[in-house]
Structures are given as C-alpha cells and as structure tokens.
Write a protein that binds this DNA or RNA. Sequence first.
DNA 1: ATTTTTTTCTCGACAGTCGAGAAATTAACT
DNA 2: AGTTAATTTCTCGACTGTCGAGAAAAAAAT
Lengths: 413, 413
Amino acid sequence: MLAKSSTELVRQKNSALVLSALRRHGPLAHTELSDFTKLSSATVSVITADLERAQIIEKAEQQAASGRGRPRVLFSQRRDFGYLIIVVISSDAVQYSLVDYAGRLIDRFSEERPQEVSGVGPFIAAMRDALRRIAARSQLDHDKVLMISISSKGLVDNSETVLRWSPIFGRDEIDFAAVLADEWPAKIMLGNETLLVAAALGRQEENNKDSDFRAMAALSLGHSIGLGIVRREEGGGHQVSAPNFGHMMHVPGGALCRCGARGCIEAYAGFYAMLRTAFDVPLDTIPAKFVPIAELDKIAVSARNGGRRNVLAFRQAGLALGNGLSRVLSLHERMPIVITGPGVRYYDLLIEGITEGLAESHVVRMEGMPELRVALDESTLVFDGHINRAFSIIDNDIVKRVGSSIELRAQAG
Amino acid sequence: MLAKSSTELVRQKNSALVLSALRRHGPLAHTELSDFTKLSSATVSVITADLERAQIIEKAEQQAASGRGRPRVLFSQRRDFGYLIIVVISSDAVQYSLVDYAGRLIDRFSEERPQEVSGVGPFIAAMRDALRRIAARSQLDHDKVLMISISSKGLVDNSETVLRWSPIFGRDEIDFAAVLADEWPAKIMLGNETLLVAAALGRQEENNKDSDFRAMAALSLGHSIGLGIVRREEGGGHQVSAPNFGHMMHVPGGALCRCGARGCIEAYAGFYAMLRTAFDVPLDTIPAKFVPIAELDKIAVSARNGGRRNVLAFRQAGLALGNGLSRVLSLHERMPIVITGPGVRYYDLLIEGITEGLAESHVVRMEGMPELRVALDESTLVFDGHINRAFSIIDNDIVKRVGSSIELRAQAG
DNA sequence: ATTTTTTTCTCGACAGTCGAGAAATTAACT
DNA sequence: AGTTAATTTCTCGACTGTCGAGAAAAAAAT
C-alpha cells in the first residue's frame, strides 16, 4: 500500500501477463492470448504490437490452417532476444546450461569438482572460465546474457547473491554478484537448490486445475538435508523460502554435525549420520566429508533383511525428519510434503520413523497426517525451478523498459 | 500475476492510498495528502471529491489559519460512516469495545468469564447478548456495524472465522461467522491474539523511519505461550502469521501438556508448567486449569533469593523458549523478538535459559543472537492490532464500492 | 486598496482499456 | 469461378484515469 498506481503500471502488469501466458502455454495466437489473460482483443493488439516493435516477441510462421476462417498467427518469444545461463553446483560437479529466451536448452556441460577441498579461490576461477566458455561456444556476446542463475545447497542471503554457508565451502562466503560483475552485465541470482525444487512443484500444482493449492514443502534427502517451502500469495504470486531446515536443532547438545554445531537434524538424517549410526560410531565423531552412495545401499540391503543396527540407522533418521517436519507444520499451515533427492530410495526404510516423529506432535494430532509424496526427478525439478524463476524475473524487468528506451532504439534502428 | 489490471483498479488502489494516509496521520489537507501519497494535486481533488460524495470522508471545520495564504481544509473520516466492534477473549474475561469509523473508542465493557468451564453454548449466548447490548447502548442499527473483530489465544483457521483450538475451549471449534451471521450483516474476523500484537508492532516499526524493518516476532508469555510473526511484503504490505508455537514439540515424549500431547513448549514454559517444576511434581501430572499469578510471583521471589528448585523452573522454561525460538529462526530469517504478556515480569529469571537455548543452534552461531526486546503493554498492542487490521480491510472493501453503487445512492438521495 | 503567499480547483493533454464493428483470409458450397 | 459462411485480426470512438500548469480563492502583509 506504499506505492501509488498509474496507467503506465497497468500497462506493465498487463504486458507481463501476456508474456507469462506465453511462458506457460507456449506460442499463442491473438485470440488465445485474449482468452488466457481476459484482456480485450483490442488491448492484446496494442500490447503485442509494442512487444513486437521492441524485438521481444515475433509472429511465428503460420502453420497449416486447421479450420476455415482467417488463419491464426502465433506469437512466441524471439529466441535471440537474450540468453540465460544456469549453474547448478552440487557436491561432486558443477553443471552449466545455456538457455535461449524461449526457454530452449542450447548447450550444456558439467565439470567435475575435485573431492579434495580446493577452496573458494580456485572454484571461482574455474567458474569464471566455464562461463566464458559456454558463451564462446555459442558465439554470444556477454551482454546478450540476461541472467546467470546459480543454485547450491546451503544458506543463501536475503540479497539472493551471497552464499552464506554451504556444505561444500562451509563458512567461506561467496558473493557471486561481486565476483562476476566485472565480466558480466547480466543480473546474478543465487538460490537454494531445494527452494527451486519447491518453486517448480508449486508451478506444477498451479497448472493442475483441480487442486486447491495453498502451500507445499519440498524435502531433499542426501548427504545434507534441504527444505523449500512455497506458498501461494494473494494476487496469484508465489512466495518461496528456503529454511535452514537441515541445521534446525533436533536434540539440544546432540550428535556432532558437519556445521560444527550439535544436534542438527542433518547430524541424524544426513547420509554421513546414518552411516555413523549404522557402524555404531560415537555421535561426536567428526563426520565424513563424503559418503559414496554404494555404502548406504549396502546398509539399506542389510536393513531390509532385518539387520537391527541398520534398521535403527534409518529409523533414527526418520524420527529426526519427522520431528523436524512436525515443527515446520507447527510454524506454518498444514501442507503436503514432497520428498526428493538421492535419499528417496530409502523411503521404505525411513517412512516408519518419519510417521512416528510426526505423530507425536500437537499439530498432527489436530489436523491429521500431512500428505507425503515422493518425487524421483530432483535434477529436472531444479532445472525447471531455475527456468521458471529466472524468466519470471527477466520478463518483469523487460516489461518496465518497453515503451520507453526500447521504443526509442527501434525508432533509431 | 493472475489477474489483469485496469484503470478502475488504479483508482481503487489510489483511493485506498488516500484513506490509509488518513488513518496513519489523522486529518490531512489536500496538500498533505498529495505529499504523502505522491499523487498529483489534481488526482487528490478527484479522489477526495468522490469519497466525500460517498459520505466516507468530510471536510473538517477549518481551524484558525496558521499562516497567510488560503487556509487549509482538513479531510477526515466521517465518524458515523460505520462502526467496529472489537471482542477480546481472554482466559478470565471478555472485553467488548465499540469504535467509530475514525478510530475513536466510543464504548467499552468487560464481562467476567466463570472459571468453571461452562462450555461453548453458554459462551456464545453471552456473547450474542453482549454484542446486542453494546450496539443498543449507542443506539446503533446492526447494519451500521461494518465489522466484528474477535481475538483469542489459540489456533485460528485459515478462513479467519473459525477457532480450531483454544486453551479455553480446547477442541470445541467455534465458527464465529456462522454463529453471528443471522443477526449481524457485518464482516466477522477472528485473529490469534499474539498475531495482532505482531501486527501492531510491525505497524509501529513501519512508522519508525530509520529502521530497516523486514520481519519481527512477538512472543507472549503467560498461562499459554503465543507467537506472532510479521513480515514486510514486496509492495509495502505486511504478512502476519500466528504459528502454533506454544504447542510446537520441544522434547519428544516429554512433559504432559494441557493440549493432551507430550513435550510441547508450553508444557515447559507455561505458567502451570513452571509451577509443576517448582514443586517437583511429576511431569505427567495433569496440568492446572488456572494459576493465579500470585503463586508464580512467590516462586519468582524465592528464585531471586537463590531458591534452587525455583531457579530451575524459570531456567527450564527459558531453555524451552530459547530452543523453540532457535527453530523459528531456522525456518525464517533473522528477526528481532519482542517479548510480551504477563510473563515478562519474570524476564530477569528467564533470560539466561532463553539465551542458552538460542546459543546452541546453527543459525545463532551463524548470524549471532537475535535482538530481544520487552513490551509491557500487551493489551494496548492487541487493541491497536485489531484497529489496524480491521480498518485496513474495511477501507479496502469500501473503496471497491465507491464510484459504483454508492454513487447511485448519492444521486438518488 | 494592492500585493504577496499559500492552498485548492479546473482544464486540456496524454495513456490505457474496452466493445463493436470493419477488414482480412480461408473453407465450403453452388 | 463466384459466392457465402466462418473465423481471426485490426481499428475506431467512447470512457476512465493521472498529470502539469495555471486559474481561482482566500487570508496576511504592505
């Protein structure tokens, strides 16, 4: 309620509406745009004409006319209006993807990250190099890149450019915006990985007409534990947040966590923690840097055959997760929980503990068990989350410039 | 991004802006309105003329001209445009207040609530009676009442009219909208008490120019424990939520709580819980319905004189609160915490445990201790919260009708 | 009385949306 | 081949909104 409104703002919002319809449904004709946005045909004409003049959208080749009457002409984003680079940092590799303005994947490669910690400096250097490379391979000027969208596990600052803490670099902060500013005019955005998963799930649920989606949580199980929450806002927007769930306190003064604190959820439910319990190692043992998933698979096999110590490892992990989730539900509303990440393969072993950990709480007694789902394709969700978030921001930025500077540029050209 | 925008919406928003400036700063002249809202003088003229025609605002008697030049004429809300009834339900009494459209208190009375639980039925009957009475005493027709705003401790449904769980009525739900609909055309709103405290604090902080307010939590200590969180939204709005903090799990399978679950924070930090610890009663003893504050005062005196068992009672309560708050901070961002409610008088005894409970967590190690403040005037904050929230909603509703139906009515009359 | 100062009101320009109908374009029909 | 029907896109005039500039109003100072 702070800012005044004006007719120009109306145009901005409605232009953004047109662009987002295009994002959601792919190429659309004039009539369809009018249907989806509820804007009048006349308004759609003006807006599309503006966007076309600004080189943002274009009329596609008209396909074979399907019925009688004047054939539709489809509008779609100009693929070469600009580009998006997506950087997914995981514990063992960094994946670079180049995407055009229409959302199509153009190029992608991964680089191994040496397991032995090489520190922030070399990592930044490697990243700067890789970014240069992915642009060069498609012969793109750096100013054609609209945004570099980065994700990592860990704690992201409110600024959305600073990595405050991560399982990989610990407390060595990285300010990606500062690090890349000299070479890239693009907007830099950093997001927690599980937050992007939640964002993607929220978008999916939104498209699903008959679900009365209000909120949803994504829980990622792996070497570390991530949680993302997405809530629907009044006005149709989504609000996402990435709580520091993995390092929420489970048991005061409890097991030693990688982060140096004691009693974090991760110190009971992370891969290294399950290993520790399975081998009956003291809980203040310094956690392993990395656990090959094969190790855990062995424990799982044994647990499924009734190995008591191994069953206990998964049960304790489940309990920590369940207790933690019950606390999340106490602090938010009831919402479905989608479990994802490499750890889902042990879902059968974890579920008992999770359920029990949830059941004890007041919320669950009041409102019943939350719905639990499993999503196997975490990496797809991360990528979708990147694309959704990036283009939603890019489109909203662009729309502010249409009608002012870009119009002038078009006159000049 | 779901709804289209239009010129009428612009007018609606700007009208709301004018009304909210009037709420925030009291009677304002044309020039001041233009300054505060950043709207042009011409626009302010049109909007105020509309609102005046719709009988919502009026030109006040012009006060003595303070300088030279044409004297200012102040606009203010018409006090008789409509009325608000505020109902504050607490464990021992129910307070009814009648407020006019300009926000001035007109009438107020309290009714004792018998300590022996008399059930929901009699309570509703008494409330209906009291509401009739407060309107009758000021000779108001029921349709002059724009909203009935109710608050209670406990768990409020998303609908904001249904009390799901409360320390007073337990699991006996009350749907206030359904109960009052036959007699009152007014909008019915229900809010958690501590949520309103948080809302009021947020508003205060907002007015405080030099604070970069992002989020804030209010913690109310008493027989039960309440938490309200207010966050600033993009666009200037505030988002408030009332987590079920008192019944968040503190220790799995721990002390017996009034709610029937085990290990809730309240079961360690509520007044009855501290009493239980002080007298070394087993933790699964059924909690006292009500604890006279004098009892706790005695324990506090003893604790301040070094009585070990009594020191422990406050320390354990503080620990539960501190651990719980650390979990809240894990799930949200860092934010200042304002402690309020009757329990603040033991702040000196609680603070050690609270600090210790916070210190163990990863967030606090990362981001440092959150700022802790004390607010003594809880009941004032609750009342302010009611008024802020109610009129903000009322004004936004009204503005939608200006220019359509109300205009017609003015023509007819 | 006249001038100065301050505030409020009014007018024309400009930006935006909308409904209705004109123009365009193709398939179907005679 | 020419005509008609169907469908989509484009265009025009009406309406609503905001804004800047300057006119009008009203009181104090000269």
